[in-house]
């Protein structure tokens, strides 16, 4: 892992078009600003991990879709 010391307002540049700027440094956290091309997704790690986990739980085959659809609440007219 590359380790940098950065002060408030200073930036790290990654590859072509990705910038990470330190906006604010507090007691418990650091506020970062990220500039990235539109095709580069930027997420909080724990948010991405929780969606990975939810997707893995959703990827189970279902035995009987017809029976399952009967269990849904009725559609409002």
């Amino acid at each position: 892992m590359l380790v940098f010391t950065r002060r408030r307002g200073e930036t790290i540049r990654i590859g072509d078009g990705i910038e990470v700027q330190v906006l604010r440094v507090g007691r418990d956290g650091v506020r970062l600003g990220v500039v990235a091309p539109p095709d580069v997704p930027v997420h909080r790690q724990e948010v991405y991990a929780s969606i990975c986990e939810a997707n893995r739980r959703a990827a189970n085959p279902v035995p009987d879709l017809v029976a399952l659809s009967r269990r849904l609440p009725r559609e409002r007219p």
């Binding site: 997707n55 959703a58 279902v62």
Partner: peptide, 16 residues
């Protein structure tokens, strides 16, 4: 995305 849990609970991922 819909999850069918081991106890039969049907849950949907409305966040993502």
């Amino acid at each position: 995305l819909v999850m069918i849990e081991p106890d039969g609970t049907i849950a949907a991922n409305l966040a993502a």
